[in-house]
Design a protein around this nucleic acid. Sequence first.
DNA 1: GATGAATGAGGGTTCATTCAT
DNA 2: TATGAATGAACCCTCATTCAT
Lengths: 219, 219, 219, 219
Amino acid sequence: MYTRALKDKRSETMNRIIEAATAVFADVGYSGARVDEIAKKAGVNKATIYYHIGDKEALYAQVLHDVTGDAADRIEENVEGAKGPAEKLKRYFEAIVETVDEHPSLAPLMMREVASGGQNVPVVIAQDLMRIYAMLLQILEAGAREGVFIPANTLVAHLMFLGPLIFYKNVEATWKNNQTFADLFARLDEEIYQGMGAEIAASGSEEILRLTLRALLKG
Amino acid sequence: MYTRALKDKRSETMNRIIEAATAVFADVGYSGARVDEIAKKAGVNKATIYYHIGDKEALYAQVLHDVTGDAADRIEENVEGAKGPAEKLKRYFEAIVETVDEHPSLAPLMMREVASGGQNVPVVIAQDLMRIYAMLLQILEAGAREGVFIPANTLVAHLMFLGPLIFYKNVEATWKNNQTFADLFARLDEEIYQGMGAEIAASGSEEILRLTLRALLKG
Amino acid sequence: MYTRALKDKRSETMNRIIEAATAVFADVGYSGARVDEIAKKAGVNKATIYYHIGDKEALYAQVLHDVTGDAADRIEENVEGAKGPAEKLKRYFEAIVETVDEHPSLAPLMMREVASGGQNVPVVIAQDLMRIYAMLLQILEAGAREGVFIPANTLVAHLMFLGPLIFYKNVEATWKNNQTFADLFARLDEEIYQGMGAEIAASGSEEILRLTLRALLKG
Amino acid sequence: MYTRALKDKRSETMNRIIEAATAVFADVGYSGARVDEIAKKAGVNKATIYYHIGDKEALYAQVLHDVTGDAADRIEENVEGAKGPAEKLKRYFEAIVETVDEHPSLAPLMMREVASGGQNVPVVIAQDLMRIYAMLLQILEAGAREGVFIPANTLVAHLMFLGPLIFYKNVEATWKNNQTFADLFARLDEEIYQGMGAEIAASGSEEILRLTLRALLKG
DNA sequence: GATGAATGAGGGTTCATTCAT
DNA sequence: TATGAATGAACCCTCATTCAT
């Protein structure tokens, strides 16, 4: 497994730094992140970060790659064993869910990255993303050829799943961690607030998977 | 129309400031934005911003409200005239598409806001969001009662449409404006790059609408 | 009377500005004062101050002169009627007490001015101060000649009275207006706090006058 | 000795910063002081001040405490060895003179602090001041019990000495350092100017001590 | 490998002052 | 006479980065 292998290869200090950086970047974004805070959270001196990894940008790239690289690996492994485009598609989505569940920081990181138009995405990350996208392309093409999928724009198909999932994960995390925001809603309309809470509690990932397949599969 | 009325009521200077701020916040996020740059882009002295609006946070709130308030207004107007839940749902989604098309900054702004967990969302914005969400709630409930929609988690239903749309709009903008990023893809795999370009060119919004309705409507 | 005559000669607006400025300068000093706050307190637009009086420095000079000019006038009037150096000295001190009582801002203004070494004292103020000092000089010289005073350094004699008085007035005002500070003392030592409060309540001015005369008069 | 021990314990940089800050605050007061100037005077980068001490307010507190803490220590040491209230009182005053002489900035700092009503006095300073005041209280009470002092308001007694001394020190410093002000007087009245200069040159502290004791001691 | 100290380059905000009306 | 709007010049503070140890 990508993640674990990586962690074993790296020094304790490195791991602590990356972990802390991941959390902070996910929480407040690249420009919002303070190297000071990352160092403090990692329990190391600020200069140590520079010694081991380099400047803020390099640190950010490292964080992103840790997550996107793992995602690509997982999807690859998952899809490989499946038979037929429909099954492959399902496995593809499930691998993404798995990754997102294991890396709670992936959702916010990706949202911000998309929002900023990948202005600073390093090549490594672009490669990871392309690996992921190429796999979907193959699956959808095979499915169209075999007539199990409705004809659809590949990019849109991808986003039909990724979009709701990432949004949902963020909303879920916000609802759980950020009491301020939930309280705001509670104060505005208690009933809607209750209903929203209930819906967030129900596993959204599966629902999204169900609806997406319903949209894309024939019949 | 909300937007136009607002613009007429406000002074030239105010409008220029808000407009510039919207662009900058959308581009680089709250922490990435520099008041200096906003002022320069608006063609006013930095102090003028503080004179008219207040600090950076107030400016950001103003920018967000301008967009979310307009969205809520549009949806309301659009949905009002429609008959039956299915038609209302379609109009609801169309109003969102309309808003997103008219405010290119909405997509990145919303993504970042969702990513940051609405940590600093002022009450005004929360109210706007709730208005929007409450309308969908009513539509879906009516639809479920009348048996035209499949049973579905409301929040997920909302995100099924909003997620892909916002992602798509961001990707589209990135592809068009950020040559660096597109070039990166071109260099990695020319074929995929070409295909992606073609798919982005095709109107994604309609495709998303079609697929979302396919997922949610019965039959 | 200096003060009243001046007020009658000046426009309502001017009086309101000077009054507000006096309070603010006394409260927070020259550099601590904000023209904005003075304008707000005076109930006029900031630009009005510039129109009527001029820049911050001119405003400050005006404020100082209003108070020192009045002090000089009062002392002159008071001392004139008295017979003999001892009586004159008493009247001199009493006039100062009177002025300080009527202008609560005099004490802090003077302290700050002394602390800053009169770095920005305009000529008008210097003239006022000199008038006051020259009167004391004459009285003390006459008293020394007639043998009713002990030989003493004139400046020191002046400060023997002025110093305690100004300090006392400031301490008194602080005790009465600044609950925070008094509370601090109360928390540190309740007994000392009580005693201090009682002593401040007793009229300090008379006590100072008594002790000063005891120090300066023969016998 | 407090001051020296402190200086040894602190880093060179810290000492240079505090020293520079003391001078600047004394010269132009808290609001008049510019952190930039303090940094320049200390020969360090502005950020170094924030690194070592904190914000402007913390710096000010440090400066005040350095001086008031030393004063309290000196008085304590001085008074301890003395016998009888009269001797103790003399020693008490002498210790103050000593402190004031060693810290030329004490006089202006204290004047401004008194003028501003201790609005921002931190607890440490309040403790220092209380220590000083409590000692005088004990001495005066003992003296009153033993019949060597005339009955007097303690606070006033304190101010009878402190007031003239602090005023005198400020006037003296102004006269020596601020040629502008002296020149102003010289131009207004050459004779008074000469006399004043002569009186300032004579040691005022001793004169003040003599007169104060004359005022407070019986007989 | 790790860190405390130091800093240059801004970043947000304030403020005295001006000016068109 | 009076003012709302606008601004240049600071001012306090922060932050990514470096360096001697």
